[in-house]
Nucleic acid binder design. Structure first.
Ligand SMILES: NC(=O)c1ccc[n+]([C@@H]2O[C@H](COP(=O)([O-])OP(=O)(O)OC[C@H]3O[C@@H](n4cnc5c(N)ncnc54)[C@H](O)[C@@H]3O)[C@@H](O)[C@H]2O)c1
Ligand SMILES: NC(=O)c1ccc[n+]([C@@H]2O[C@H](COP(=O)([O-])OP(=O)(O)OC[C@H]3O[C@@H](n4cnc5c(N)ncnc54)[C@H](O)[C@@H]3O)[C@@H](O)[C@H]2O)c1
Lengths: 215, 215
DNA sequence: ATATAATTGTGAAATATATCACGACTTCTT
DNA sequence: AAGAAGTCGTGATATATTTCACAATTATAT
């Protein structure tokens, strides 16, 4: 049932398509063309058609795509029928922001518990998510396969080792550390400082149209 | 002085290299090879050499790269000698987390002011960053070219229009909305829910080695 | 002084992604 | 019912990025 031939670039766009299809559905739209979708998600319409085509012929020539059908298809494809539980490690500035966000609504993902090393935080709850001590990882984290890492960079390697030994398979890493994991574990990095700095770099070195490059 | 031929993929990695070179320098390391750096940043060593080579011959065969020299070079390349001021729009969960983070230290970027629509937040300061009312944008935001957008998705288009009319050139957009801007404005999207959902998708559909695909 | 080991920079090849452009088919209009 | 308009799916092509692999050069050991 697995389509290992779906390009990663396509896979990364699926959640985006899914969200916009949901929006359209809520607006009562019955059909949508790759052109319309393109304007909404800012992805070239040929790319959208190509993306969809990896899953078969989902549309109808001359008509477009049926919103409800497409939505249902992607819901299954993205496993949106079952809730995915994740753990959050590091209840600081970023971690707290995530705990206050409802990933269930649109993404069917639930942060089920948080862990921190600070005794002042242990035992509390944020948006109904209980916070445990990091030493309770083994005891509490049974069955959870995905972790969000929002701890100081210095702690990243130690905590990652623990997570790996407890059977985690995926980590969303917000620390600037490039953590080391065995081959069978997937890590996605979101490096906010790098993103910001890269944006600034692009602005200065790849100016878009207006404002010609001086000097 | 501009090198418009540097691939975007390379440009995105520059801040990463810069940070690790900084680390090495602090550790007192004098030289580093592409292989060592590769292990630290998890980027193939050939890719690193290729990336560096776009800027000329920065290394020495049989020796590697001089850390201090490379660091100095990238500091200039990344304009790390002057502070870049940015504005943050939307002082909620995420926005507050960013305000509490010091981007100055490693990235020479300063969030100089925040804006919000909530009167309870206006007039306060978070980590010494003053919060103004969104209606004061024009009055206060003079000279700032980059904005971080952390407002509700519904507000994204309206606020973006204002930002654009006030001469912003780059936006780091954390809302799930795909905002529409003129061609000369650069928008980078960081869509946290999409990132999380994409990670989950990859885990289920592209399992790495161990744990063969069932069903 | 010589041999050995390390490491760069890069042409060439491989891989990945995006876009063009059009035949085939559907829907809409009159 | 016929013609016009719209839209998909996709072969071909273009572009972007990564990786291989090796000659050239430098450093190190004996
Ligand atoms: N806040 C931002 O805007 C921002 C921006 C860029 C990068 N980051 C990175 O994200 C990470 C988190 O940032 P933050 O601002 O939320 O930091 P923070 O200091 O506010 O939060 C870190 C939390 O982790 C906890 N912690 C420390 N050691 C731990 C351990 N061993 N196990 C479990 N919990 C532990 C701390 O008690 C604290 O609550 C950092 O690595 C930071 O560099 C944050
Ligand atoms: N918090 C998360 O973990 C998370 C995850 C995924 C996506 N997001 C997205 O990031 C954005 C911010 O999320 P959040 O959790 O910080 O939301 P939030 O509701 O906590 O904060 C939004 C802030 O924007 C302010 N605001 C509303 N309208 C405004 C306007 N017109 N001008 C200026 N300020 C205005 C509000 O007063 C509030 O302080 C949202 O679009 C959300 O979908 C957040």
């Amino acid at each position: 049932m697995d389509q290992n031939k779906i390009p990663q670039a396509t896979a990364k766009r699926l959640p985006l398509y899914y969200r916009f299809l949901n929006n359209l559905n809520h607006q009562g739209k019955r059909r949508v063309s790759s052109k319309e979708l393109s304007e909404a998600v800012k992805v070239d319409s040929a790319t959208i058609r190509r993306d969809f085509s990896y899953f078969g012929a989902l549309g109808k020539k001359g008509y477009g795509y049926n919103v409800e059908y497409l939505l249902g298809f992607f819901r299954k494809t993205l496993d949106q029928d079952e809730v995915t539980d994740v753990a959050l490690i590091g209840v600081g500035n970023l971690g707290t922001a995530f705990l206050n966000y409802n990933f269930l609504k649109n993404n069917n993902i639930r942060i089920q518990m948080g862990f921190d090393a600070d005794p002042a935080k242990v035992g509390t709850a944020i948006s109904d998510v209980p916070i445990y001590h990091i030493d309770q990882l083994e005891e509490k984290m049974k069955g959870i396969e995905v972790a969000i890492l929002t701890i100081p960079a210095e702690e990243a390697d130690t905590v990652t080792e623990k997570l790996v030994s407890l059977g985690i398979t995926g980590i969303l890493n917000f620390t600037p550390a490039r953590i080391t994991v065995p081959d069978h574990i997937r890590v996605h990095h979101i490096d906010l400082a790098v993103e910001l700095q890269a944006l600034v770099y692009f602005l200065k070195h790849y100016p878009l149209k207006k404002g010609p490059v001086e000097e």
